[in-house]
Each structure stands twice: as C-alpha cells, then as structure tokens.
Computed example of a mutant assay.
Amino acid sequence: MLVIRPIEPEDYPALYTIAEESGVGFTSLPLNEEILQDKIATSKESFAKNITQPGEENYLFVLEDQATGEIVGTTAIVASVGMSSPFYHYHRSVVVHASQELGVHNKMEVLILCNHYTGCTEICTLFLREPYRSGTNGRLLSKSRFLFLADFPERFSNKVIAEMRGYSDENGQSPFWGWLGENFFKIDFARADYLVGMGNKVFIAELMPKYPLYVNLLSKQARDAISQVHPKTKPALRLLEKEGFKHVGYIDIFDGGPTVEAELTELNSIRNSRLKVARIGDVAEDEELYLISNRGLENYRCTIAPVKVLEHDRVLLSQQLADALQISEGDSVRIVAVDGYYRERYRL
C-alpha cells in the first residue's frame, strides 16, 4: 500500500534521488544538499506552526511504499507565493495597432511581465518515480493535497495555482528559453533553472525585458512552445483540469509552460469530499475505491483503498488500512471517490 505523509529528515537521501531523476526543468528540487535539507526543515516547521492565516509555509510530502519503506514520489504545497521574493509570470495579452487613415487594424499578441499571483497558494513539486507510474498512484500523489487543503483552509489562500513544467526536447533544451536567454540573458536553460531553484531570482529583475514582448518577434520554435507542457507533465495537467483548474494566459518566464488556477472551494475533490466516522472490519476487495485521509496535520496520512460507505456518516475500513492511516475505531476521516474506478482495474 502506498501512503502519503509529511517528509522527515531521514527521507533526505530519497529526496536527493528524486531530484536527480526529475532532471532539468524541475525547478523546485535543485541538486543541492543545503537547499534540499532546508526544504525538509522548513516543511517540519510549517506543519508544527499554529496558523490562523497563510504565510510562507511550505508543506512537503512523500509517497511511501509501506511494503518496502521506499520513497517513490513527492509533492508539496506553498501557502503563499511571492511574499519575500518576487513571483514572476508572463501574461499573454493582445494589443491593437490601428490607423483609420490607412485602413490598418492589427491585433498583436504580447507577453507582459507581472506578479499577479502574489499571495496565492501553489501546489507544486509533484514527481512520481518511473516504476510506480501506473494505476491510481498518480491520482493519489496529486489529489492527496486537496484533502489536506480541505481540512486546513485557514492555512491557505482562496486561489490555488500550479505551474506546469514547460516543453523541452530530449536534450533538456527549452525552445522558449532558447530565444529569451540568447537575446537577454546569455546563459543556458540548465543554468537559469538551477539558479531559480537555488532561490537566486535577482538576475530576473536585472536582465528580464521590462516592456511587453511581441510574440511575432519570437522564433517559431519559441512561439510554438508557449503554454505547452513537457510530455511527462501531460498526465498531471489532465488530473488538474479534471479538478477544475484552468489556464487563463499566465506562463512561466523560463520555459513558457502554462500556469493553471482554481478557487480552493471549487476544486472537485474538495467539493465532493465527505467527513465520515471510521468503523473497522472486513472489506470486500471489489468495493469502490476512495481517496481517504486521517485529517491529521503533523501526522497526515492519505491513501487510496476500497472502503464501504455505511449509513449515518460511517465508513468501513480494513484493519490494514486503519493501521496505514494511523487511526482507530470512531476517528474522523475524509473521503472522496476516485472517479468511479475500482480495485480490480489497478494495482494499489
């Protein structure tokens, strides 16, 4: 059984391995021991804080295979972005160049540098190791965050965003950055990606063009990459779109990948989730699959398993599931159906 839980200091070697495997373009996990250790420490502090409104907390989770103890994935939630350092995007807009005398009326697409998402909650750092990319594992890694948001809304903003990894080729080269970097930065994509992951964003403010970029002046390769996602990111984007996330014209300033947004209370997994009282007993394997969490904070646990919904707001769980969630009979849990999929169709 795979279970989501908060990261612990002893998970550092696994986090470093994930950072290695994620490759160029996965900005939030740079290959740097100090930064990764700091992320773990910040996460521990965030879970332990008594919060009444969102600040700069960063909640980092891991996906653990309980049969082996192996860490097979990670994901995170940033409570409020852009509070201590600028959070940049390009916004796709249209300007009109017209002359009544000449009979000319041209619509031109432009990219405008902005900080419009400052203060929003960001879901990020989603990575599932290759051998586990099957069944409901991706859904668990993605949707587990929404049950956490549902139980602790005071810790998060009303608007939730996700920056999707932009398109890059088999050599890790971003055609969008290829044009932007060549003309304004004179450093390659891997170097820029690493600097941002290290928290060094000063060069953006220093070198980024302050005026709108006319899209028709970009190379064809750069234009084609705008709002496109990395091939390995497409499944994650589809999951978010099913939750209600939409792309409304904001893109990453490095790889041109889309940023999607949604209102926290409108997310499908939150709207459709229900609080139940746990009963423990025998559960048939062909019962419907549910995403289920223990509603904990520092001891948060979430997984996908077959459960039986009973009358009077009760739900029947197996003893194995109760142990995995660290709950007892009578405890409160939050559940939501997993898109109508059933256990026999997936490996849990």
Score class of each variant (00 low, 15 high):
residue 297 L to N: 12
residue 92 R to G: 00
residue 334 R to M: 10
residue 174 S to W: 06
residue 301 R to W: 10
residue 36 L to E: 03
residue 261 E to M: 02
residue 93 S to F: 05
residue 170 E to I: 11
residue 112 I to D: 05
residue 47 F to S: 10
residue 294 N to Y: 10
residue 129 R to P: 01
residue 20 E to W: 07
residue 251 I to Q: 04
residue 3 V to K: 07
residue 70 E to S: 13
residue 26 F to Q: 08
residue 348 L to V: 11
residue 34 E to W: 06
residue 75 T to F: 02
residue 123 I to P: 01
residue 218 L to A: 03
residue 268 N to I: 12
residue 177 W to G: 09
residue 93 S to I: 01
residue 289 L to C: 07
residue 296 G to C: 07
residue 142 S to L: 04
residue 196 V to C: 11
residue 199 G to Q: 08
residue 330 G to W: 06
residue 294 N to F: 07
residue 180 L to Y: 06
residue 143 K to N: 13
residue 8 E to K: 14
residue 274 R to N: 00
residue 344 E to P: 05
residue 244 G to Y: 09
residue 46 S to G: 08
residue 326 Q to D: 14
residue 262 A to W: 03
residue 280 I to M: 07
residue 248 V to C: 07
residue 277 V to Y: 08
residue 286 D to P: 00
residue 122 E to Q: 12
residue 103 G to V: 09
residue 27 T to P: 05
residue 172 G to W: 00
residue 170 E to H: 08
residue 193 D to V: 09
residue 117 Y to T: 14
residue 280 I to D: 06
residue 131 P to A: 04
residue 336 V to R: 01
residue 224 D to P: 01
residue 85 S to L: 07
residue 31 L to W: 03
residue 41 A to N: 10
residue 77 I to P: 01
residue 51 I to T: 13
residue 260 V to W: 03
residue 47 F to R: 11
residue 315 V to F: 07
residue 174 S to A: 08
residue 286 D to M: 04
residue 56 E to C: 13
residue 205 A to D: 14
residue 315 V to G: 10
residue 279 R to K: 15
residue 323 D to V: 08
residue 113 L to E: 13
residue 174 S to L: 10
residue 68 T to H: 05
residue 236 A to K: 05
residue 205 A to M: 09
residue 63 L to F: 05
residue 24 V to E: 08
